[in-house]
Design a binder for these strands. Structure first.
Length: 585
DNA sequence: GCCGTTTTCGGCCCGACTGTTTTCAGTCG
C-alpha cells in the first residue's frame, strides 16, 4: 500500500496533536500542522518522488527534519517518532481534542486526573460530576463538555456550500434590518466557496455592536446561543449549523472582512508581510506605531482598513479573490502581478451537459432550451444517458436517432439559443463505450462517464478510464472522480495520468456543478490548467431549475485558479464548434 | 521545527469570549 500525500498529512497532524498533549513547544506543533496542510493540498506525489530517488521540491515550512520524516513515511509507511509518541498517549485522547472548548491543556488535565481517555469516558465523568472537582473547571464547564461530547457523538457532517449559502442569505437579509447596522457580508469558508462549510461566518459593521448582537441572537431560527459579547456572538440554528457574527466599526470593514474570510494560513502570511513592513494588521485595520515625545506607549496610526483593497494595497499587493486565499501561492503570484483573471459566471456562454425526459430528466427539450436561454446561455448540449444506465432510461442507438430528430425539429424554432446533440455515454467495465462508434459519430459532443464499478483497484480504474479516452469521439470526461460529497468517496484513479491523457487528446474534463458533486476538485482544476487540459463547467441539469447550479461550478473553478481561456464553454458557439470538430490523433 | 536584505539564534499572528478566577489561562477563529 503506497503512502499518499494524505497519509503523510495525517501522520503530521497526529504528531502535532500528540506533541500538543505533551506540552511541547507550540511552534514545533505549528510546524507540523503547517506541513500537514501544505502536503495535504499538494499535487505532486511525494512518495513517488522518494521511490524514484528524486529530490523533493523545496516546500515552505518543510526543512531538513520534516523532509527526512516524509522519506521515512514514504519508504516504510511509519514515522519512528510518531510510533514512539503513540505509545505514550492512550489512544482516544487525541479525539478529545476535537471537542470544542477542549484544547491540549484541559484534555491533559482531564485525562491525567480523571483517567478519561475517550469521549464516552469523559461523558461518564461529567455525569458523575467529577469534572467540576478539578482546579480550573466548574459546573458550567462540566455541562459545556457534556453538551460538546453529545454533539460530537451525533456529529453532523459539514454542510454543502449550496445549503449553507441559503441559510447565510436569509441571515444576511435579517441582519440588514438590525438597528444601526451599516453593512452585512458573509465571510469565512462560505465566501471562499469551499465545497463544504463547517459553520457560517458573518460580518456586520455598526457603531453599536451590542445592539446588533442582541438582534442577531433573537433570530427566529436560533436553537441556542453559544456566546454573545459586544463585538461577536455565536448561535446554533435549529438545523444544527453554527453561525458566528462579528461586528466592527465601518472604518474597519475591509480589514475585518479580510480577517474573517481567511483562510487562517492566508491571514498569517498577510500579518507577516505587515510585520516585515513594520506595520500591524488585525481585524480593525492596518496600523503603524508611532512613538511621540512625552508618551510612553507608541500610538497606533491607521494606515488602511475601510476596504480590502486598501489593506492589500498598503501591503504592496493587488486585491486577491477570496477563492484564492488558501496560501497556495496566491501571495507570491500577487506580488509578481501574476494573479489569474478568474472565470466568472458571466463568462459561461453555454452548458454541455443536461438531461430531459428522454432519459431521467423532468422537462422537455423545449423547456430545457428555454430555461438555459433564460439563464443567459447561448447553447446547450442535450446529453442523455446511454442504454447501459437502464434505471435512467438510457438511450440505445434507435432512440438516440429519434431524439436527434427531435432536437433538430426544436432547434429550428428556437431563437437566442442553439441546441447541440450530445450523449453522456457510459464507460463499460473494460473501458469500451456503451454505444457503437457509428452512433457516436453523428453527435456534436460525446461525454464519457463512469457510473459503475466504482471500487476497482486504482491501476484497473485508471486503465479503464484511459481506454475510454482513446475513443476518437470522446470530447469530455464527465465528473472525473465520481464522488458524491458526504455520500461516496472519489474512486481510486491516477488523476495525473487521466489529466495528461485529456491534455494530449484535446479532451475536456468536466467540472460537474451539481452541489452534490462539484467534481472536478479544485486541486485537479489547477492540475488540469498546469497540464494544458481544458475544463467544461456543466450543470448536469435534470430540471429547468438546475442551471442555477452553474454558479457553484464557477466558484469551484475559481478555487482551482481557472481563467476563461481554461474553460471550454466560455467560448462562443462558432469557436466551440471549431474545437468540437478538431481532428484528433 | 522553520527561518533569515538587520539575524544561524531567537523569534514565530492577534484579539475576543468564557469561566474560572480576584487578574488570568485556555480556547477559538
Amino acid at each position: 500500500m503506497p503512502t499518499t500525500n494524505a497519509d503523510i498529512a495525517a501522520a503530521f497532524d497526529q504528531m502535532a496533536d500528540l506533541l500538543d498533549l505533551r506540552n511541547a513547544n507550540p511552534f514545533r506543533v505549528r510546524a507540523y500542522r503547517n506541513a500537514s496542510r501544505i502536503i495535504g493540498g499538494l499535487k505532486i506525489d511525494l512518495a513517488a518522488l522518494v521511490g524514484a530517488n528524486e529530490a523533493l521540491p523545496k516546500l515552505p515550512g518543510i526543512g531538513a527534519d520534516l523532509e527526512e520524516k516524509i522519506r521515512q513515511l514514504a519508504r516504510t509507511g511509519h514515522m519512528r517518532e510518531l510510533d514512539r509518541l503513540r505509545t505514550q498517549v492512550p489512544p482516544g485522547v487525541t479525539e478529545l481534542l476535537r471537542l470544542p472548548g477542549l484544547g491540549p491543556k484541559r484534555v491533559r488535565a482531564l485525562s491525567d486526573q480523571l483517567h478519561a481517555y475517550s469521549p464516552a469516558e469523559l461523558l461518564r465523568a461529567a455525569r458523575d460530576e467529577r469534572i467540576r472537582e478539578l482546579r480550573g473547571f466548574g459546573a458550567a464547564s462540566e455541562k459545556k463538555i457534556a453538551d460538546a461530547i453529545q454533539a460530537h457523538l451525533s456529529k453532523k457532517p459539514r454542510v454543502k456550500l449550496a445549503v449553507a449559502a441559503q441559510y447565510a442569505e436569509a441571515l444576511c437579509a435579517y441582519l440588514r434590518k438590525a438597528p444601526g447596522v451599516i453593512q452585512v457580508a458573509p465571510a469565512g469558508s462560505l465566501r471562499r466557496a469551499r465545497e463544504t462549510v463547517g459553520d457560517i461566518d458573518l460580518l456586520a459593521t455598526a457603531a453599536d455592536g451590542a445592539a446588533v448582537v442582541r438582534y442577531f441572537t433573537a433570530y427566529g431560527d436560533t436553537e441556542r446561543v453559544l456566546a454573545a459579547g459586544d463585538t461577536r456572538a455565536s448561535i446554533v440554528l435549529k438545523a444544527g449549523l453554527q453561525v458566528d457574527l462579528r461586528v466592527v466599526p465601518a472604518a474597519s470593514y475591509g480589514a475585518a472582512l479580510l480577517y474573517f474570510t481567511g483562510s487562517k494560513a492566508h491571514n498569517i502570511r498577510l500579518r507577516n508581510l505587515a510585520l516585515a513592513a513594520d506595520l500591524k494588521l488585525n481585524e480593525y485595520g492596518l496600523f503603524r506605531s508611532e512613538r511621540s515625545r512625552g508618551r510612553r506607549a507608541a500610538a497606533l496610526v491607521p494606515v488602511a482598513g475601510a476596504t480590502e483593497e486598501s489593506v492589500y494595497a498598503a501591503l504592496g499587493l493587488p486585491w486577491i479573490a477570496p477563492e484564492l486565499r488558501e496560501d497556495r501561492g496566491e501571495i507570491e503570484a500577487a506580488r509578481k502581478g501574476e494573479l489569474p483573471s478568474l472565470v466568472e459566471r458571466a463568462s459561461l456562454q453555454g452548458d454541455l451537459h443536461a438531461h430531459t425526459r428522454w432519459s431521467d430528466g423532468t422537462a422537455t427539450i423545449e423547456q430545457m432550451a428555454e430555461a438555459a436561454r433564460a439563464h443567459g446561455l447561448t447553447y446547450l448540449a442535450i446529453s442523455e444517458h446511454s442504454r447501459r444506465l437502464a434505471v435512467a432510461r438510457g438511450l440505445d442507438p434507435a432512440r438516440l436517432r429519434q431524439q436527434g430528430a427531435e432536437i433538430e425539429r426544436v432547434n429550428a424554432g428556437l431563437r437566442g439559443i442553439t441546441l447541440l446533440a450530445g450523449i453522456e455515454c457510459d464507460v463499460l467495465d473494460d473501458g469500451a463505450l456503451d454505444l457503437p462508434d457509428s452512433a457516436l459519430a453523428r453527435l456534436d459532443v460525446v461525454i464519457a462517464a463512469v457510473h459503475s464499478k466504482f471500487d476497482l483497484p486504482r491501476a484497473k480504474q485508471t486503465a479503464r478510464i484511459l481506454a475510454a479516452l482513446d475513443n476518437p469521439h470522446v470530447r469530455i470526461l464527465a465528473h472525473p472522480l465520481g464522488r458524491l460529497i458526504d455520500v461516496r468517496e472519489p474512486y481510486a484513479v491516477d488523476m495525473l495520468a487521466v489529466i495528461r491523457k485529456c491534455s494530449a487528446r484535446g479532451i475536456a474534463l468536466e467540472l460537474n456543478a451539481h452541489p452534490e458533486r462539484l467534481d472536478l476538485l479544485d486541486v485537479y482544476c489547477r492540475m488540469a490548467k498546469d497540464e494544458g487540459a481544458l475544463v467544461s463547467i456543466n450543470s448536469d441539469a435534470h430540471s429547468v431549475h438546475e442551471f442555477d447550479n452553474l454558479i457553484h461550478g464557477v466558484s469551484q473553478a475559481r478555487r482551482g485558479w481557472l481563467e476563461p481561456s481554461d474553460v471550454i464553454n466560455t467560448r462562443s458557439l462558432p469557436e466551440l464548434r471549431v474545437w468540437l470538430r478538431a481532428k484528433r490523433d
